[in-house]
Design a protein around this nucleic acid. Structure first.
Length: 118
DNA sequence: AAACTGACTAATA
DNA sequence: CTATTAGCCAGTT
């Protein structure tokens, strides 16, 4: 009986000790219509203080992967800006489609939409 | 190995 | 409220 093959769609990234996979599994637990912050995901993945690492992991995420990356926002409840400005709109639309509302300044109410895992 | 970078955050101004 | 700063730490060059 052989051990299960470690599925990895993107071998080019140096996924040290499966840290990315732990991050992905946390993000996968965020329910529809809820959002979490980078720092929160890092903490739940057992790597407190590694918020940026969460950003790296999501950045390296292949499209084909079943991970709701759009539900991860920054501590201000905003879509984190990145190189391509268009993605901000895309992420926001995905969330609005799930029922997450944004105010006029592009911010969500974390008190209301923030994920509170039990 | 040193320097640079970044989908971060909290504290200040 | 926005802007800046310092701390953070792994991935990349």
């Amino acid at each position: 009986m052989t051990s299960p093959p470690p599925l990895r769609e993107n071998p080019s990234v140096s996924d040290r000790d499966g840290a990315y996979e732990r991050i992905y599994s946390v993000v996968r637990r965020i329910p529809r219509g809820r959002v979490a912050t980078y720092g929160q995901v890092a903490r739940l993945a057992g790597m407190p203080g590694h918020a940026r690492q969460v950003g790296y992991a999501l950045h390296a995420l292949p499209e084909s992967r079943d991970v709701p990356w759009q539900r991860v926002l920054n501590a201000q409840g905003r879509v984190s800006p990145r190189a391509e400005p268009d993605w901000e709109q895309i992420q926001r639309q995905l969330l609005e489609r799930e029922g997450v509302r944004f105010d006029t300044s592009g911010r969500t109410d974390l008190e209301r939409y923030g994920w509170r895992p039990r």
